[in-house]
Design a protein around this nucleic acid. Structure first.
Lengths: 192, 192
DNA sequence: TACTTTGTAAAGTTTAAATTGCACAGATTT
DNA sequence: AAATCTGTGCAATTTAAACTTTACAAAGTA
């Protein structure tokens, strides 16, 4: 049986890693971020140590400006951070290595934003309804009364929902989720 | 204190509903679907009964073709369905009225897709690695051995992660999530 | 049969997102 | 101080997504 040369093997390994990186990027897209975010995450993850904008640009073939934009986004999403490397002027970026933690960060970032907007709307609508009710004369048509009632009800339902999401986010963020959906490592020692 | 006319009140109520619809659309966008998906969901939800493509086009000011496209997407996402209305040739569409259920449908649709793609990749990569190992000669360089080891390890980690997501999806889809993060209705009777 | 209605396929247009190139400020070195 | 390096703001460009127009098949109606 003939052997491959080291170079050939390394190239094959690299191509496997690239496939894995693509999968990571695909996974990221589900969080509604650009696939480039996922690609950089994958690249840095595989690299196993912090990378500079230049090395990222080099690896992806994209402009350094874009690398800068994406890394900033990743930092604001809490899935990457700058790492000080002595003797180098360049910024070095590293990523969260725990996939489940990354999942939770993104899930939390996304939904917290939604919840915040919902809360501010709810206050506004409750106010508005109270205001309308004071202007509601006794001889208002049946339709108006019914619609008013419905609106109130819709608002309650919506409120119930996003309170649920709010609790859901806490359930993830606190790590309680892991008590009920544990992380199971395949071959090594398993968590009881 | 002066009263508003019925027309004025209805208009005010409508504008509140529109704000709520916008919020629903915003919420939907977090799932990575077009905001129009969310808008239609909100409109049909508020309407409280099934709607036709024409009435949707009328309500949104968009083309009927687009309504058709979006409703099809919503059906494939499991958050809407056609409803038979006797005496009418038109298709009538209704939506899931339970927000939390809608959340779960979308969450599940999105991640199941990812999991499926991951599984097929994993099989392929395991195969490839096994193949490479057979060609790995004893005198292969240290670097090749290390990289090989790492690749294996990365694949294991990724596998652990998406098994977790897989369990997570089941946790939601089965409704078990509600045992730990219950839905709490605000004023009415509360579930113990 | 000829005439409507309804939903959607296909191709074209518009709008928004991703990406680049240039330029420049702040920091570092010579 | 001059020269260089690094990250990023900004405008321009490319690419992809959202949406429209037109056309037509399938089914219903007169």
């Amino acid at each position: 049986m003939e052997s491959f040369s080291d170079d050939q093997l390394l190239q094959e390994i690299k191509s496997c890693e690239d496939l894995l990186t693509d999968r990571i990027a695909d996974n990221m897209e589900t969080f509604g971020v650009s696939s480039t975010v996922g690609r950089l995450l994958g690249i840095i993850y595989m690299n196993r140590e912090a990378m500079t904008l230049d090395s990222l640009a080099d690896e992806t073939g994209m402009s350094k400006t874009r690398m800068s934009q994406v890394m900033r986004q990743m930092i604001s999403l809490n899935i990457a951070e700058k790492e000080y490397v002595k003797g180098s002027r360049k910024d070095h970026y590293n990523v969260e290595r725990d996939y489940a933690q990354t999942f939770i960060s993104l899930f939390t970032s996304n939904w917290s934003e939604v919840i915040k907007r919902n809360m501010s709307l709810e206050r506004r609508l409750r106010e508005q309804i109270r205001h309308l009710e004071t202007y509601l004369s006794e001889d208002a048509s049946e339709e108006v009364k019914v619609r008013m009632e419905r609106l109130q009800q819709e608002l309650d339902e919506w409120n119930t929902y996003y309170n649920w999401i709010n609790n859901l986010v806490a359930f993830f963020e606190s790590g309680e989720i892991f008590n009920h959906v544990p992380i199971v490592t395949p071959n090594k020692k398993e968590e009881a």
